[in-house]
Amino acid sequence: MINIPKKPAPTYLVTLGIPAAILFTIFSFRRIGFNLQDFRENLANRAIVTDPLFNPKWQWAWDNTADALLETVQIAILASIVGCAVALPLAFYASRATNLNKYSYFLYKSFLNLVRTIPDLFWAMLFTVAVGIGPFAGVLALIMFSLAIMGKLLSETIDSIDPGPMEAAKATGASHNQSVFTSALPQVLPNYTAYFLYIFELCIRASVILGLVGAGGVGRIIETQRIFLRFDRISPIIVIILVVVILIEQFSVWIRRRII
């Protein structure tokens, strides 16, 4: 007879977690008012949106969105550059490999986590109230957004660097800061560039919706047209943005291949 090894008993995570997850799912669906019958009855209403959405007015979009689109791109460029620049030193302070002080490490790490919990549009709402409606609020919001993502990605990359070069630098008499500059920084620079391009893409996508709360960019046009249910004017904007995002993606793939 073949001796088949016994399957290990399921852990608590499985025996308790899965029923809990299922219960929570049922509870959530009840609380959000999930109702397929109403959905089916009102499905015809979709025509209000989908008919114009699939019937785009290209000429209109061409004539009226160029300024706002440029604004969107400019917001994304400025915010991703400033955000990533600020995040660079922060990430080194928020990594155990380069920050030897336990407390300040914890402080920087918590700060980055805190910034990350607030969604991009919340930042935009807060900044429109603080500095006034307009693209400046959008730039500030996306600076926080890119700062949070870059801080997390880069600090985790720094955590996993090869400690050898830093040790070598210290062995030659370099101070801690010098060893970080000469040994840790060059190791993560290729990743930094790659993350920057990725964040720039995210910023372009995010800056589209900033206008909904008055923080500038093409979202401002989307919001006004949405109120008048002119989805035939919104869909070309979405397509144009998609093309811009794809172009930027191609560009970043090209640069990434050059650098890494």
Binding site: N35, F39, V49, L53, R205, V208, L212, I222, R226
Partner: peptide, 20 residues
Amino acid sequence: AFPELILAFVFLPITGLGPF
């Protein structure tokens, strides 16, 4: 390609204002 907010616009006339 469609952000969640734009999808929400599409569903608003079908499911109304609310969490659904």
